[in-house]
Deep mutational scan, measured.
Amino acid sequence: MEVRTIKVFTTVDNINLHTQVVDMSMTYGQQFGPTYLDGADVTKIKPHNSHEGKTFYVLPNDDTLRVEAFEYYHTTDPSFLGRYMSALNHTKKWKYPQVNGLTSIKWADNNCYLATALLTLQQIELKFNPPALQDAYYRARAGEAANFCALILAYCNKTVGELGDVRETMSYLFQHANLDSCKRVLNVVCKTCGQQQTTLKGVEAVMYMGTLSYEQFKKGVQIPCTCGKQATKYLVQQESPFVMMSAPPAQYELKHGTFTCASEYTGNYQCGHYKHITSKETLYCIDGALLTKSSEYKGPITDVFYKENSYTTTIK
């Protein structure tokens, strides 16, 4: 009895394709271990004539594949690729409408935090270190965002349907971005203890939790000093293409032309909904596939993004 075979390709990165001759009487799992086709788990399936010449994702289970996976995804987590594939199996079914010149995501599976993050990423200057993220990001900007969303979920250790947080998501993504040249110098002034300067680099240099107003941050924000008295913390120097200011959701007025974009969060910790506000020729609110415009805006804002380049204080 002759062994019926077909020729397929296996890959971990969709760049390096490895030619395989597979036995049609055995499952993919018996031949390769966990195997995925377009995100779908085909591990328990036997090869079919229609699979001839198709590319299958496999887990990096030998040295060659491990090197290829690390170079593309910059992670050695053995569960990463499987999590990416199972997320992709959902995100490829989502709709990605162009809204006001940006790629958004039609609401499904509690994905409003991903839509808000995706919209924000198209408006701030950011370059990702893992080629996987950078490639998928370019495709997302062009309207094909399924891979990018699935990668975000995998890097953030999230599953489809789980509630997510924009600030946490951005923080994970910033860790995989090139923020080497970003720098922030802060000064804390206390009447009792004097003053202390701190220099922050990388992710810490672009994120701040405690106030939404970048102007206020430049002037000074009140913080408790270690001595128990009130101290003032203010920005001395900022070198970065953008800054992200966050605070627990509270009524906040966004003035046209003073910011790049913002995240609105309605609801409580267990259950809520994100919308995205962007400042173009007027203010726009993007909620999944829905767009509304207004000249002014007041609502429960939790993150505001500002364009920056270089700032030095005039406070002496």
Results as ranks from 00 to 15, higher is better:
261 C>V: 05
127 K>G: 07
124 I>C: 06
209 M>V: 15
91 T>L: 05
2 E>V: 13
49 N>A: 12
269 Y>S: 15
62 D>N: 12
93 K>A: 11
200 L>T: 10
261 C>P: 02
136 A>S: 10
126 L>M: 07
141 R>M: 08
250 A>D: 14
210 G>V: 04
178 N>I: 05
73 Y>P: 02
49 N>S: 13
110 N>Y: 05
124 I>T: 04
231 A>Y: 04
90 H>A: 11
74 H>L: 14
282 T>C: 10
185 V>I: 13
279 S>H: 07
172 Y>T: 12
214 Y>T: 04
237 Q>I: 08
249 P>W: 00
189 V>I: 11
295 S>M: 13
225 C>V: 00
65 L>Y: 08
79 S>M: 14
136 A>F: 07
145 A>T: 02
118 L>T: 04
68 E>V: 04
26 M>G: 14
263 S>V: 13
25 S>F: 10
132 A>Y: 03
59 L>Q: 06
167 R>W: 03
46 K>P: 10
120 T>A: 14
243 V>M: 00
145 A>C: 08
175 Q>S: 09
50 S>V: 12
55 T>A: 11
236 V>Q: 03
119 L>F: 00
14 N>Q: 11
290 L>M: 13
201 K>F: 15
247 A>L: 00
262 A>L: 06
64 T>L: 10
153 L>E: 01
226 T>A: 14
241 P>L: 03
72 Y>W: 07
240 S>M: 00
192 T>K: 08
241 P>S: 08
264 E>I: 06
178 N>L: 06
295 S>N: 08
27 T>L: 10
159 T>C: 14
163 L>Y: 15
40 A>I: 11
53 G>D: 10
186 L>Q: 11
22 V>N: 04
150 A>T: 05
221 V>Y: 04
56 F>P: 02
145 A>L: 01
253 E>I: 11
98 Q>E: 15
17 L>N: 08
49 N>P: 13
5 T>M: 13
263 S>F: 08
311 Y>G: 07
96 Y>M: 01
225 C>M: 01
159 T>K: 15
143 G>T: 04
122 Q>E: 02
216 Q>W: 02
171 S>P: 02
33 G>D: 02
279 S>P: 05
289 A>L: 07
302 T>A: 08
11 T>V: 01
217 F>I: 14
222 Q>Y: 03
236 V>T: 03
312 T>G: 10
162 E>H: 02
215 E>H: 11
284 Y>D: 11
173 L>M: 13
291 L>V: 14
161 G>R: 01
